[in-house]
Amino acid sequence: MKRIQLIFIGMLAAVTSLHAQQPLTHTQHGQLRTVINPAASLMRIDGEVSVIGRRQWVGMDGAPTVFWGSGHIGFENFSATTGISIRHESMAVEKLTEASAFFAKSVRISETEYLGLSLNAGFSYMDGRFSQLDPMDPAFREDVQETDALVGFGVMLYRPERYYVGLSLPRLMLGNLGVGGESRYNFRNLYHLTAGALFNLGADFQFRPSVLVTYSESLRPQAEASALFFVKRVFGIGLNVRSYGELAGMAQFNFAGIGLGYSYQFNPGSEPLNRRISNTTHEIGLSYRFDRALELL
Rank of each mutant, 00 (worst) to 15 (best):
I52E: 11
R171Q: 07
A92V: 09
H72V: 05
N120I: 02
P138L: 07
Q31W: 15
R171P: 02
I4T: 13
P268A: 09
R188T: 15
P160T: 06
R292G: 02
A121T: 05
A225P: 03
Q56S: 13
N200H: 09
T281Y: 04
R242T: 10
I45S: 05
S263M: 03
F67T: 07
A39Y: 01
I237Q: 14
F290S: 08
F140K: 00
E76T: 14
N176R: 08
M1T: 13
I258G: 04
R162A: 12
S131F: 04
F199P: 02
F235Q: 13
L133P: 01
L193G: 12
L219T: 08
D134Y: 06
Y215I: 07
G236S: 10
Y114I: 02
H282S: 14
G236K: 14
T25Y: 07
E111V: 09
T16R: 01
R184D: 10
L133A: 09
L212D: 06
G261N: 07
P38Y: 07
D148S: 08
V211D: 00
G285F: 02
L297K: 00
H282W: 10
I284G: 02
L273F: 13
E182C: 08
A39H: 01
A225L: 12
A104D: 07
G122F: 06
Q22F: 00
G261R: 05
G116C: 04
V211A: 13
V144H: 05
T194F: 07
N37A: 08
L6T: 08
E217A: 09
R33S: 13
R54F: 04
D127G: 04
G257M: 03
A251E: 03
G257S: 04
G74R: 06
V211C: 11
N189Y: 01
Y185H: 14
T34A: 11
V107G: 08
L150Q: 07
G53F: 02
S79I: 06
G116N: 03
V179L: 14
L297A: 03
T81E: 10
A248V: 01
L42G: 05
T25M: 05
A14E: 12
G30C: 04
R292H: 06
L117N: 06
L296F: 11
I277W: 11
T27S: 11
Y114L: 08
N240H: 10
G59P: 06
N186D: 13
D46Y: 04
P23G: 10
G30E: 02
N240F: 04
F123V: 13
L174F: 12
G71R: 01
L18E: 14
F253C: 15
N200T: 06
R171K: 15
